[in-house]
């Protein structure tokens, strides 16, 4: 990359921001548990969510203050999401879904800070979360309905001759859930952050020409960055929301496979 830059190539490496840098090398019984920049931001996210939900509520005021209102709104928001998508028997899983939503949301929002690491821009993280949801939901489905859970793969009213095909498609679509769930979150954040970096690079390219025209031309990508930053904040929230809503829907399938 240094060579590219010297040759007048693209000034910013848009991929550089996704690099994992080991801060403290750790090893537990052969498992590489090195504390990396990704771990750092996971820990920051954890502390931020904890501070948000526990310390903002320490007053437990009957009339909530500003922070307490936001915490309560988040609580009600996720609680409604679970109730509407997974039904009342989904309430048992509310703590998990709340944690999932807050963790992904805060990680995404922290990713918007300059020099911060975007935890969810790594497929392994989103895939691990998606697999946790997938395995958890499948276990809940079998625990709650026994073999009746398999009815999920046999939709009502499918014509007899097509039934094997329909069942096959249903099974494939079920198995592809963790992939679509994880790739959606990962790809959205990855693409957004790369786009921002590329437009930032354009500004440097334009300005480094030194000409008036070049500096004037930098205004366009600058405007794009402003607009994209706003969009990325939306994406940060929206993807956390989508991830959580889909989790609720999968949970609903597990709890009520007949529908």
């Amino acid at each position: 990359m240094a060579a590219d830059q010297a040759q007048g190539g693209f000034p910013v490496d848009p991929i550089h921001q996704f690099q994992i840098q080991t801060l403290i090398p750790l090893d537990f019984g052969g498992i590489d548990a090195s504390f990396t920049n990704s771990s750092l931001w996971m820990v920051i996210t954890m502390f931020a969510v904890t501070a948000f939900t526990i310390f903002a509520m320490r007053g437990r005021a009957m009339v909530p203050g500003r922070m307490q209102s936001i915490v309560e709104m988040s609580y009600e928001f996720v609680a409604n999401m679970v109730r509407e998508n997974a039904g009342s028997d989904g309430q048992k899983f509310f703590p998990f879904i709340f944690t999932l939503f807050m963790f992904v949301l805060f990680a995404n929002l922290f990713g918007m800070f300059p020099y911060a690491f975007t935890v969810m821009s790594h497929i392994i993280v989103t895939f691990a979360l998606a697999m946790t949801v997938f395995i958890g939901v499948t276990l809940v489905g079998f625990a709650k309905n026994g073999l009746g859970f398999l009815k999920l793969f046999v939709p009502d009213g499918a014509p007899g001759a097509l039934l094997p095909l329909v069942v096959l498609i249903e099974i494939i679509s079920y198995l592809s859930r963790p992939i679509s769930l994880s790739v959606r979150l990962f790809a959205n954040l990855l693409a957004g952050h790369i786009t921002l970096k590329i437009f930032a690079g354009f500004i440097i390219t334009f300005v480094s020409t030194g000409s008036v025209l070049g500096i004037a031309g930098a205004i366009l990508p600058m405007g794009m960055i402003v607009a994209l930053t706003a969009l990325e904040f939306l994406v940060a929230f929206l993807q956390a929301y989508v991830f959580t809503v889909l989790t609720c829907m999968y949970l609903s399938d597990a709890l009520h496979p007949g529908h």
């Binding site: 080991t22 548990a33 954890m46 939900t53 526990i54 790594h122």
Partner: peptide, 23 residues
Amino acid sequence: EPQLVWLLITFGILYYLMSKIAL
């Protein structure tokens, strides 16, 4: 590997704190 380890640690602690204290 380190990402998975730290995801497990941070998410696990957060889940514990949320389900036992915050929520």
